[in-house]
Nucleic acid binder design. Structure first.
Lengths: 341, 341
DNA sequence: CGCTAGACCGAAAGCGCTTTCGGAATCAAC
DNA sequence: GTTGATTCCGAAAGCGCTTTCGGTCTAGCG
């Protein structure tokens, strides 16, 4: 199979290489006639420009990278999949590529970002779930690489981001529980070196204050975002002299574990102990009982993030691209009024 | 920030560009001394080769693409995430890139494959969940692009693949149900234009035969792979004059829906009606009751698939890379003996 | 001390495309 | 019929790297 290049087409058409290129790229200084002739022959021979050459010549990569969250198994988390899907389809429409890159280890992360920035492979990158202080963000800024973060770090004034207001969500979350009559509301949180972990904790605390509830460290557990961790944390807190009547979880997955622990204790989630999750996973419909949760409006966030990034690549000011969304409550069966004692 | 190129380094070092390149790439005709000197300066200036130039010059892309399954929302399916993660980490170790590409629409799929093959962007591709007759596979063969398919099409003799034996799994699946005493075993399947859909159906039918059970089309429903579809199918079959006592589902997600339909009918899954899923999703632990399922051994399949593909890119014969795995039964609570009538 | 091998490096030719620049051809207008 | 403006295209110079080829220099040998 003869590799069909510009040169080949040019020879075939009897015109210059540069002319073929300009015709294909719709330059205005090419007559309608030759433009059509060129395109026709190109299609006939199924010509596809060599992307590497094109990128080298133009200096634009027409590709963006998604930097996987640092912890392992992150991609299996639904939010990553959702995001990737949105990015992918949005990019595909413009003919751009989506690179998904994983740092092989936390140590090589900086290296990875640097390589991404200097190697010309991509014209922009999106990262998610930043730490409070995130090295990647600093690096990206330093290298002047357009980027957008899905989430925020503590200091988010000078870059583009797309985030859901976790502080508000958790503040309001204790609100719904308190309104139901709960006085002793536990919190299962995520590691606070993640900014979202910190923020959700902050929201919880502020929610307590707003409802004149006392903060009790005994019913606050910071742990990782797995169902097993949620289960262990719940089991422990249920054994307390004064167990909580409701549990607020930083992630749905933790909440799944919480439900299991409650049942294992012979109690009924939603009746004896309420559980409120966060994420809005569809799976939550199928838990026992179905999980009440605060859903991230992530339906088209991938597309939106992509659009924002593209705008920045086109020269937009990152600061103009900061979007804050609100979570919305999905009422299912795991939250109810406290049982009268 | 001065773009640091080979030329820049060469000038800095006072030696020729080509020499710098050869030093960096460990050519044997460079003295130990200059090699070290070059590498040191390269590191000092944080030199990263422009990948586009490199790829253009060498003709090798050092990247592979994952072609997303054609249906929408496919990426949210756990198997895709798992695969992507394995591919990504495996590739990262070698410094290769992972492209995830989505055809913007089914019509443009062929176009997408052709572009992938001709544009020099990648040196190999992996696709999953092929149709019985899959256009992409034909195209990939035609263009002589190294590839491996996750799954198989009907005619899988002449390319590389990695698959789980769905036929056997479903044959054995009706076996475990039959051994428990079930006589009326329903099947909720996936569209049979997907090869895996066909194969699972075939396995089910053969399982019926092996256990001297009659095949009744009334309790076979081919539908799509969502929980809602599973729920609807189950609801319908439960309303039959002779409802099934057990239901075999092509995917766990359908099984989740089946559980819901059974409960909605006032019955208890695992007691009155058994449900056996397929996929081995972790989330199945949290359904009500926990889902018994046949798990795909997908822990490191991404890595394995990557290794196989790389071997083919290195000139290996695709036919030598065909791996068939077996699903394993994960016993949870949704399967039990039929209730004596 | 002259000569032949290596060892090491410089020069240059691409890789396949884009894009600028200028020249030829065409056309209108005087 | 000449001029000036247009239109259209060819030529050529890169983009930043790799890789071949040949030349210089040193070392080793007789």
């Amino acid at each position: 199979m003869q590799r069909v290049s510009l040169k080949f087409l040019a020879k075939e058409l009897g015109i210059a290489e540069g002319t073929v290129s300009r015709a294909l790229n719709d330059y205005p200084d090419i007559s309608q006639a030759t433009r059509e002739r060129v395109k026709e022959v190109a299609k006939k021979f199924n010509y596809k420009a060599n992307q590497n050459a094109r990128r080298l010549a133009t200096g634009v990569a027409e590709a963006v990278a998604y930097l996987m969250p640092p912890n392992t198994h992150a991609i299996s988390e639904p939010f990553v999949s959702q995001l990737l899907e949105g990015l992918g389809s949005s990019l595909a429409k413009r003919g751009w590529d989506l690179l998904v890159v994983q740092a092989s280890s936390p140590e090589t992360e900086a290296e990875t970002v640097e390589k991404l920035s200097s190697s010309g492979k991509v014209s922009g990158v999106v990262i998610s779930r930043p730490y409070k202080e995130d090295r990647r963000i600093e690096l990206l800024k330093k290298y002047n690489m357009p980027f957008i973060v899905h989430g925020r770090s503590v200091n988010s004034a000078d870059y583009a981001w797309f985030d859901v207001d976790g502080e508000k969500a958790f503040h309001d979350g204790v609100g719904v529980l308190a309104d139901l009559g709960h006085q002793r509301i536990a919190f299962i949180g995520a590691p606070t070196d993640y900014n979202f972990g910190q923020v959700r904790l902050d929201g919880y605390k502020r929610g307590l204050a707003s409802n004149n509830l006392v903060l009790d460290n005994a019913i606050i557990t910071i742990t990782d975002m797995s169902d097993d961790a949620g289960e262990a944390a719940t089991a422990r807190m249920l054994d307390l002299p004064q167990p909580p009547t409701a549990i607020l979880c930083a992630t749905d997955t933790q909440a799944f574990g919480a439900l299991a622990a409650i049942r294992a204790n012979g109690l009924t989630p939603g009746i004896e102990v309420s559980v409120l999750g966060y994420d809005g996973l569809d799976f939550g419909k199928h838990t026992h009982p179905p999980l009440t949760t605060m859903a991230q409006p992530q339906s088209h966030s991938g597309e939106e993030i992509c659009d924002m990034l593209l705008a920045i690549i086109d020269g937009g000011n990152p600061v103009d691209y900061q979007e804050l969304r609100s979570a919305i409550l999905v009422r299912r069966m795991s939250v109810g009024p406290p049982r009268p004692q």
